[in-house]
């Protein structure tokens, strides 16, 4: 088993990653590179640094300490040359204001368990539990399997939020101890899928059928949720929603608990800035009800209203800081 789990965040009190109030463990490392990724720091499997304009006091301690000259002071702040950076973390250590920080944090199993078990009463009262999300949890499936096994022993429910792009045995291993599977179907056309996420989707669709079979053969899994991010001009087309809906209706209507359409918002833009990356949807506002309505109607051709949910609708100005 991996000794440590590399995470970007362990967030307590989440309400959008499975039923009730939960702790969501966001792991680091993902085989997909979705252009709209809400957690761009979760993609890379190395624990690199990033820099926050908001917290920087301009002391340049980081530039001075860098041994590979990967850092320089540019017009818009500190510039990180990713080719030169060796992820040593010295700059994060020396930064007085935590403006420069490591994107990830490693947890040992016992440490992570003791952190999440302190929220037991919240899980109980809200009917929640622990979700592993990402990044892609299945990249660290040995750790997740053991983590989930221990949680089940403590009578805490588990949810796996996955993109599905993983070898089947890894899925099988984690599924033994998983109550809820939150499964992403982003784009039905495999070519488009490759274009926007970096990988084709055949394996993802096959794995979904495998999970559906394991639900049918009782197993431990209680519920299967499909999640589709609504990305303007990419996934948020009637054609894409119709195709995904058809696939669901033809293959998994019996085991589907919920199909969630996650409305686009740009609240991750600050994270792209911290990464020194360009947010490709700059200027794209949050989705409004009129953008959602036709997609909802299309989705309802495939699933009953009781199984469809729209999440992530926010009011203008409700952006949380990254």
């Amino acid at each position: 088993m991996d000794n440590k789990l590399l995470t970007i965040d362990v967030s307590h009190g989440t309400t959008h990653d499975g039923p009730g109030m939960r702790t969501t463990v966001f792991v680091k490392g993902c085989p997909l590179h979705c252009v709209w990724c809400q957690n761009p720091e979760s993609i890379g499997r190395d624990n690199g640094v990033w820099w926050s304009f908001r917290d920087c006091i301009g002391c340049l301690s980081c530039v001075k300490v860098c041994r590979t000259n990967a850092l320089s002071a540019g017009d818009a702040g500190i510039v990180i040359d990713r080719d030169l950076c060796v992820n040593c973390g010295d700059c994060a250590d020396v930064c007085p204001s935590s403006a420069m920080s490591l994107q990830g944090r490693e947890y040992g199993l016992e440490e992570l368990l003791s952190d999440v078990l302190r929220y037991r009463h919240y899980y109980n009262e809200f009917g929640g539990g622990v979700t592993c999300s990402g990044g892609e949890p299945l990249l660290q499936s040995d750790f997740i399997t053991e983590f989930f096994r221990r949680l089940k022993k403590e009578n805490i429910t588990t949810a796996l939020d996955t993109c599905g792009f993983a070898p089947r045995e890894r899925i099988g291993s984690v599924l033994q101890f998983t109550d809820y599977v939150l499964y992403d179907l982003k784009l039905f056309d495999s070519g488009m899928h490759k274009k926007y996420t970096g990988v084709p989707n055949e394996l993802i669709l096959e794995n979904l059928l495998y999970i559906a079979d394991s639900l049918r053969s009782s197993g431990g899994v209680k519920e299967l949720w499909i999640r589709t991010p609504l990305i303007p001009g990419v996934t948020a087309t009637e054609e894409n929603i119709r195709s995904i809906g058809r696939f669901i209706a033809e293959n998994i209507p019996d085991v589907l608990t919920r199909w969630e359409l996650c409305a686009f918002n740009g609240i991750c833009a600050a994270k792209y800035e911290k990464m020194g990356l360009k947010w490709p949807f700059n200027g794209q506002g949050a989705m409004a009800e009129e953008d959602i309505a036709p997609l909802r109607k299309t989705a309802l051709e495939a699933v009953p209203a009781s199984k469809l949910s729209i999440t992530g609708m926010i009011r203008p100005g409700n952006g949380k800081d990254a």
Partner: peptide, 23 residues
């Protein structure tokens, strides 16, 4: 904004309070 998209707001307060007291 905390309650955006949430129904039965009192349940959030009630569940939160109970969990808090039990903790």
């Amino acid at each position: 904004k905390f309650f955006d998209g949430k129904e039965e707001r009192y349940k959030y307060i009630s569940n939160f309070a109970k969990a808090f007291f039990k903790s």
